[in-house]
Design a protein around this nucleic acid. Structure first.
Lengths: 217, 217
DNA sequence: GTATTTTCATACCCATCGTTACAATAATGG
DNA sequence: CCATTATTGTAACGATGGGTATGAAAATAC
């Protein structure tokens, strides 16, 4: 993914794996948010000392931005993968929401989504965070839209709602799952909400009126 | 609402209106979040000095909690009012979302919802904030549920989705509108998303199968 | 007017914040 | 083996954080 380990040939080599450290940084920010996580928290979570952190990644702000970016790329890749692999839109949405809920409630902790749980308070004063938040949302919208467009083209679901609108509603459910998970909602409640959304978004087409072409593409 | 102005009869009277100050405190936290807002920011926003703030409301944490509580009560009351006043579920949802978008993008600022934009990062380490966040969500779910149940009873909309599930989806849209507004989404985009949700949630019943009783209740 | 009670304003406390000098360490290039 | 280059650990920097002591100010109670 990112290229921290670009093998500097001269000088003392690093005693840590940069990607692994970034993962630990992300988890620390995930728990406490940007302002609520101190450099001391980060050194504690990573085992690195301050100069090593600064030398490898930059200051606290750069560290947080890279964590946001890394999470966005990983989430988008995983979401796209899950959606494409599923044979139907219904199972695709079910799989994606199941994976999301697992992450949002990992270790029985009420974590929610890293981006939508920690970026919003900073987004108003920090335009780079706001851009990251917007990129995360927009990308997710498009990923859902693509899968829904495919399902509509295949005639699996009704075409009452355009794919872009339906995609935004699909990702809207992730926003809600995240904030509810962070509020401590049970997995059962989250799954129930997700299932309701799936039933709305993966409704079969009106029989007889719109035949579709289930083999094309 | 709250009873800060309980008129102490003895001693020097306060030189400020407590409710008005709490409103300014809320706006300050709204912009910067809990950790991102300093006591200095609060004294600047309110015009009060530190001892006056502490004497009237308690420490920073108590101040934030009261702001959350005040916002929740005001939002729930306004939401209930708007929903009940509208003649149909469709217009009810349209009115509520329109009001929400106006607040979330007030003064051309990307504010989002105060609670869901600032509470999540604190909710994981602060159980009282988490409870407030959960109370805000749960209350909103119930408010939507009640209005949807009424619409179903009146035969306005189809009963495919139970009112509690539909209510949770209706409030889920507010979660998404909030995070998107905070990310800088345009009012046009927010209204489009809201309209899609309304179309899904306020769908007319299948004609002929379930007549309903439009005069009962 | 005097005592009492509460609020207001200034100034300060200590802890913690993010960030960085500085020197020791550990690798490579010749 | 020596010079070079980058990373590591310690320790400190100035700034700012939340919270409060203290005395002046402004009202009521008698």
């Amino acid at each position: 993914m990112t290229e921290y380990n670009a093998s500097p040939r001269r000088g003392r080599p690093r005693s840590f794996d940069a990607d692994e450290v970034m993962q630990q940084v992300q988890e620390a920010f995930w728990k406490g948010g940007f302002e609520g996580t101190s450099i001391g928290d980060l050194t504690g979570a990573t085992g690195l000392n301050r100069p090593s952190l600064y030398g490898a990644f930059g200051d606290k702000h750069a560290l947080y931005l890279q964590a946001l970016q890394q999470y966005r790329e990983a989430m988008h890749a995983a979401g796209r993968q899950i959606l494409e692999d599923a044979p139907t839109l219904r199972t695709a949405l079910e799989d994606v929401y199941r994976a999301a809920i697992r992450i949002y409630t990992d270790d029985e902790e009420a974590r929610g989504c890293f981006v939508s749980s920690t970026a919003p308070p900073e987004a108003m004063r920090d335009t780079s965070v706001r851009r990251e938040l917007a990129a995360t949302n927009d990308g997710l919208d498009e990923i859902f839209e693509a899968r829904i467009a495919r399902a509509q083209a295949e005639g699996e679901v009704c075409t009452a709602l355009p794919p872009d609108d339906a995609g935004r509603i699909a990702s809207a459910m992730l926003h809600s799952l995240s904030v509810r998970a962070r509020a401590g909602a049970s997995k059962r409640a989250l799954h129930a909400l997700a299932q309701s959304a799936v039933d709305l978004l993966a409704k079969a087409p009106e029989s007889g009126s719109d035949p579709g072409n289930s083999e094309a593409g």
